[in-house]
Design a protein around this nucleic acid. Structure first.
Length: 883
RNA sequence: GGGCGAUUGGCGCAGCGGGAGCGCAGCACCCUUACAAGGUGAAGGUCGCAGGUUCAAAUCCUGCAUCGCCCACCA
């Protein structure tokens, strides 16, 4: 075994281990009748994407959960695949064309769509390969894509069902328009940002001045929209304008007469109390226009330039038009004032261009009927969010849900399956493409638009099990068990999966648990972004720290908070931890000569202690995993392995391994605890644990070929190892050893300087305890000899260690600096006295004695007694030193 | 305008009703035959501020401050 290198090298280990998993076929999963499965669907990354920190975190979370479930013996399936990502992919392909000096219209629709497929073939597997690099145990044998043929049928099925039930309708509405992507967006695809803008006050002359007043002043943040104004609105109760309601103003620059109308929407206290109304470019104005029967003049083209309706400004870009209009108004003396004004401006979530509210024909889904059962499912706990507070955010959005604009003016995506007959006016949706009109037999044309990408992604938890076909996997794996995702797609994706899932699957929820993990920010607290250069590349991190180091480092940082300020230092610790595991294992493997497999046979208090700690760890890991407290679980694993198993148990084992009487038993405990710890660690650090585990001798039972499918430690069985007495005993011994080590450090005694110490005990029982238990520990303190007794005398020139109520004298012939020792004792005296006083006051408090729990009072009394004793000892020592 | 989260040693964070912890950095000593990506030890904090509840508050409540996020038809 000595050929195992002394440093863990992920580069050497990870590749072969992953290959062995693939060839072992552990990622797939068969249906096992009668056994409850565990299923997870991956949030499908965009085909255009490559792994970022959000993916790294999210997929580690899923893999940790999935690997544990697999080890628990449940048929486990983690569905993997990618999203066609309509706008994102179309943009990428258009950028590629642009580099060749072309745009999509040069190619035509069919060729462009083919180019998108080509892109997918070239780039679509990149992110899947990156997931493999991370060690994600997805079912790679059954990869899905949201444009797969069967997936297309699912999309079409849902569209048609909703269409036929009247949940999908077409309407001319104000929608959010991205002039760069030239498509409509849904409300939640718009990101609002407060920007410094202006409030332009513009004079609109009255057509017929009266009472000495010849104009009204309106205020606007978007002066260019005035080209499409079709009325001016004031509040009906506003005395300033009451007499002008019904009059007309002459729209400046356009020289069009438009009416002044009274409408409750207007807030008299804002601006001038008079609002210019542009029904085609503002949702509120649209409503006002409807109420007052005003025309809707669309003054913008799809690309954001002014349309022919914009008169002299036609053809100008919207911002150029704004500048010119403001200048022209100024010149005409109609610009009254410009105020600074901060307002919220919507941006496209894909290209960050400022979106325009724009009047156009679009398809919508009536969401309220779909939302009602989905609200109920969370309300009654069928679906549970972790952390739970996200449920309130879900409720708030769902209870105020608005109709969903699902049509996109793109070419890449699921084409809307609606056919129109221009001959007879027939309109219908259909599963199969239509050539002829079922009504008149004439030709039909298909709707030009495609569906919002999220319309297809919402079907992911059941379309990936073959729905709407009759795939046996659907019955078996749906509902899935858990969904883990980032909070920014709670509405875009999660809520819609619950709604469409319950609709399509007869009211059955798509998943039991939803994990909303924290968003990863960089050290400056800024969002990780490739374009801003504020991101960290997970591939680089894996290069430096290994996949296990990155995974564990991330998991250490997952708490219930909503943000995660990414700390690379945690990855350093985690990489070191992987190395620690490697070397501890190496130590065990190097000391197995003569090992005979078998269950552990605890002989010493240390044996019982480490088994008890293992039992405790296993229970904590189980509990933490059930509640998705990944940070807590990974910390527990780290602390156990490093601070207990390595720092103490292995150190103690070193001595016993050389003792022929003890060697066999200590080997068994070493091996057993290592084996169990590797199993517990495996979901978090799959590579290093797998590589080592294969070298660890089995315990006698039939052994799995891979740790991936080895049995998860049984907390209930281990519970029998719980041993409070052993734990207390070892805690005291650790206290004593640390105290003696502190003395060594204080006087800089080299390791070669062996010590001989004296214990003063309070009774024979304690004397016996010291004599029995300290022998094993003495090695770790560099102590060769010791004596214990109630009347043991303090040897001259010795330092005193006070630990867990024990008094230990460390003779330091001629080495002790008494001044320094006295000073140290005085400092300790202050500290102990302060604590003792605090505790004494507490114990003298009637309220405390009458109301606190008895065990708390008993504990405090014991502690106070111990402190009092310690004080006495310190005083005695000081008296001795100073006399 | 409404809601949510954060505020703990130099930095990053955990703890969330009964003796302030971890990692990193820094300090001292140590290449002790698993590991220097290591070991041992020492040092470092009136737990944002102000009230309140309680025998007891970093932990619960109220208010405030700072930072951040989300939602909202803020001309």
């Amino acid at each position: 075994m000595t050929e195992i290198p002394s440093t863990y090298d992920p580069k050497v280990v990870e590749g072969p281990v992953f290959t062995s998993w693939m060839t072992g076929g552990y990622f797939g999963c068969e249906i096992v009748e009668g056994v409850r499965p565990y299923a997870v669907v991956i949030p499908p990354p965009n085909v255009t994407g490559s792994l970022h920190m959000g993916h790294a975190l999210n997929n580690t979370i899923q893999d940790v959960v999935v690997r544990r479930q697999r080890m628990l013996g449940r048929p486990t399936r983690w569905v993997v695949g990618t999203d066609h990502a309509g706008i994102a992919t179309q943009n990428k392909v258009e950028q590629k064309l642009a580099r060749e000096g072309k745009d999509r219209h040069d190619l035509g629709r069919d060729a462009f769509v083919e180019a998108c497929w080509e892109w997918r073939r070239e780039h679509g597997s990149i992110i899947i390969e990156q997931l493999k690099r991370m060690g994600c145990s997805c079912d790679y044998s059954d990869e899905w894509f949201t444009m797969d043929e069967s997936y297309q049928r699912a999309v079409r099925r849902v569209f048609i069902d909703w269409f036929e039930q009247g949940l999908i309708y077409r309407g001319k509405r104000i929608i959010n328009w991205c002039p760069r992507c030239t498509t409509a967006l849904s409300d939640i695809e718009v990101e609002h940002e407060d920007l410094d803008g202006h409030l332009w006050h513009i004079r609109y002359p009255l057509a017929s001045p009266s009472g000495g007043i010849d104009h009204v002043v309106v205020a606007t943040t978007r002066p260019e929209t005035m080209l499409g104004d079709t009325c001016v609105a004031v509040h009906p109760d506003d005395d300033r304008y009451r007499e002008f309601v019904g009059a007309t103003v002459v729209l400046p620059l356009m020289e069009r007469e438009i009416p002044i109308v009274a409408d409750d929407y207007v807030d008299p206290s804002f601006g001038t109390g008079a609002v210019k109304v542009t029904p085609a470019h503002d949702p509120n104005d649209f409503e006002i226009g409807e109420r007052h029967d005003c025309p809707k003049v669309n003054v913008l083209e799809a690309d954001g330039t002014v349309s022919a309706q914009g008169g002299a400004y036609a053809g100008l870009d919207r911002y150029e038009a704004r500048r010119r209009i403001v200048a022209d108004l100024d010149e005409a003396g109609l610009l009254v004032r410009i105020d600074d004004h901060v307002h919220s401006v919507g941006h496209c979530y894909r290209c960050h261009t400022v979106v325009e509210p724009w009047l156009s024909d679009q398809w919508f889904v009536d969401m309220q009927p779909l939302a009602a059962p989905a609200i109920e499912a969370v309300r009654d706990g069928r679906v549970t969010f972790h952390p739970k507070r996200w449920e309130n955010i879900y409720f708030h959005w769902m209870e105020n849900i608005r109709d969903w604009c699902i049509s996109r003016q793109l070419w890449w995506g699921h084409r809307i399956p609606v056919f129109y007959c221009d001959g007879c006016g027939w309109i219908g949706a259909s599963m199969e493409d239509r050539e002829a009109c079922p009504a008149c037999g004439g030709g039909v044309r298909q709707d030009e638009d495609v569906l919002d990408t999220w319309f297809s992604s919402q079907l992911w938890p059941f379309a990936t099990f073959g729905w709407p076909g009759d795939d046996p996997r659907l019955d078996y794996f749906y509902p899935t068990s858990m969904l883990s995702t980032a909070r920014d797609i709670l509405f875009l994706w999660v809520a819609r999966m619950i709604m469409s899932g319950m609709y399509c699957m007869d009211g059955a929820i798509p998943f039991d648990d939803v994990i909303i993990h924290p968003t990863v920010f960089n050290a400056e607290g800024r969002r990780m972004s490739k374009s801003l250069g504020t991101g960290v590349d997970p591939l680089d991190l894996m290069e430096h720290y290994g996949a296990d180091g990155m995974r564990f480092g991330l998991m250490l940082q997952v708490t219930g908070a909503q943000d995660l300020k990414f700390s690379e230092e945690k990855l350093v610790s985690s990489r070191n931890f992987a190395n620690k595991i490697w070397n501890a294992s190496r130590f065990v493997l190097m000391n197995l000569d003569g090992y005979v497999a078998g269950a552990p046979d605890p002989r010493t208090v240390a044996d019982r202690w480490i088994l008890s700690r293992l039992a405790n760890l296993t229970a904590r890991v189980d509990e933490g995993m059930e509640t998705y407290e990944f940070g807590e679980v990974s910390r527990a694993l780290y602390d156990f392995f490093w601070s207990e198993y390595c720092d103490w148990y292995i150190e103690l084992a070193k001595g016993r391994l050389t003792d022929p009487d003890q060697r066999a038993s200590v080997q068994r405990v070493l091996v057993f605890v290592l084996d169990q710890a590797l199993r517990l660690l495996h979901p978090f650090m799959p590579f290093v644990t797998e590589a080592i585990w294969r070298e660890v001798p089995h315990l006698g039972e039939e052994r799995a070929a891979s740790l991936m499918v080895a049995a998860w430690p049984d907390a209930a069985a281990l519970a029998g190892c719980a041993d409070e007495g052993a734990e207390r005993s070892i805690e005291r011994l650790i206290d004593v050893v640390s105290g003696i080590r502190a003395v060594r450090a204080r006087y800089q005694l080299p390791p070669k300087q062996r010590l001989s110490v004296v214990f003063r005990t309070v009774g024979d029982a304690e004397t016996n305890w010291v004599e029995n238990e300290f022998t094993e520990m003495s090695r770790l303190a560099g102590v060769d000899e010791f004596v214990a007794g109630t009347s043991a005398a303090k040897p001259p020139h010795s330092a005193t260690v006070l630990a867990s109520g024990l008094e230990v004298y460390v003779p330091l012939e001629g080495i002790v600096d008494f001044e320094a020792e006295a000073a140290r004792l005085r400092r300790e005296q202050d500290k102990v006295a302060a604590e003792h006083e605090k505790l004494t006051r507490k114990l003298g408090n009637e309220g405390f004695l009458s109301k606190a729990a008895p065990e708390i009072i008993a504990k405090d009394r014991a502690r106070a007694a111990e402190l009092a004793e310690t004080l006495e000892v310190i005083e005695a020592q000081l008296a001795e030193l100073e006399s």
